[in-house]
């Protein structure tokens, strides 16, 4: 299957933070959710993909091209939505459109106005009067109006109310009807992913933890609950992290079937949420350091 985004052994260091040997890929025609806690390296990775940051080492390709030689061709085909405002606060959305429109060869004005109507955005009001959600919608309207093949979004749902979050998912579903489009977005509202994400890429502390099909996660991982006497140095190795209390333990395993065989009826296995997985992975890292 064709990869739209490919990072190979990418490293980027800042003061007190590092993206370490990151190798990830995003498949064409699918929605990939990008998860990880604060400071996990999500925004940094997105900035690296957009060439807002330059990697210290490793290679990054988008549509099989690199920014060194084809920066404009790549960006022509990307629609982007960021977590921060990137519009002139003192201009109206209409003015912003006038500035952005000539940058793209394939701008579609009718499409833009369709989304502006759908999102109920005021064209004539200054951006600084917009709420966070409206700014995000404005970004989204622009991102969807130049026939981009790849939509990259950094925390798009964080400023949105639940009603519009659902509406956004409908828009994304609509977009995915055409099998050539690819969506890559980071989020920490993991429930959004249940309805749309085909693949999940999970990073933690600047490192890649896994890339999996969404349904595969629940086949591999499980929350295990059981009595404390089952735990010893050997059995604890089956878990990402264990949380103990007076009445028993709760743990996350990445080897659901093996744990089921090992403990049998002595434990209860439950479907983990993405939040469970993020929580235990972070906890496990802290213990191992």
């Amino acid at each position: 299957m064709e990869n739209v985004i490919e990072l190979q052994h990418v490293t980027k260091s800042f003061k007190g933070f590092q993206v370490k040997d990151l190798s990830i890929s995003v498949k064409k025609g699918f929605v990939t959710g990008f998860i990880g806690g604060n400071g996990a390296g999500k925004s940094t990775t997105i900035k690296l993909i957009m060439n807002l940051l330059k990697q210290d080492s490793g290679s990054i390709s988008v549509f099989g091209l690199t920014h060194d030689t084809d920066e404009r061709a790549i960006k022509e085909r990307i629609g982007f939505v960021y977590d921060e405002n990137i519009f002139y606060e003192n201009l109206t959305l209409k003015d912003m459109k006038k500035i952005i429109r000539p940058a793209y060869k394939k701008w579609n004005d009718a499409m833009f106005h369709k989304y502006v109507d759908q999102f109920e955005l005021p064209l004539g009001k200054k951006i600084k009067t917009f709420s966070k959600g409206m700014k995000m919608k404005a970004s989204l309207a622009i991102a969807l109006s130049h026939q981009a093949e790849l939509i990259i979004m950094d925390e798009p749902t964080s400023g949105l109310d639940p009603v519009f979050r659902r509406e956004l998912l409908n828009i994304l579903h609509e977009l995915m009807q055409d099998g050539d489009k690819t969506i890559f977005f980071s989020t920490h509202i993991t429930t959004d992913l249940d309805r749309i994400a085909d693949y999940i890429i999970f990073v933690n502390n600047g490192e890649h933890v896994f890339t999996k099909e969404f349904y595969k996660i629940q086949e591999d991982y499980a929350i295990v609950k059981g009595p404390l006497d089952l735990l010893d140095a050997d059995t604890e190795r089956e878990f990402v992290a264990v949380q103990k209390s007076n009445i028993g333990f709760e743990a996350l395993t990445a080897y659901k079937d093996r744990v089921a065989d090992l403990f049998g009826e002595a434990v209860v296995l439950e479907k983990p949420t993405l939040e469970d997985i993020m929580y235990y992975t972070e906890k496990g890292r802290c213990l191992n350091v």
């Binding site: 957009m50 060439n51 807002l52 920066e71 404009r72 061709a73 960006k75 022509e76 990307i78 982007f80 960021y82 921060e84 405002n85 990137i86 519009f87 002139y88 606060e89 003192n90 952005i100 940058a103 793209y104």
Partner: peptide, 17 residues
């Protein structure tokens, strides 16, 4: 104006070098 409003992020995400 460009500096104040993060416009460099916008411009660098648009198809400009």
């Amino acid at each position: 104006y460009d500096e104040k409003d993060n416009i460099n992020i916008l411009l660098n995400s648009l198809p400009y070098t």
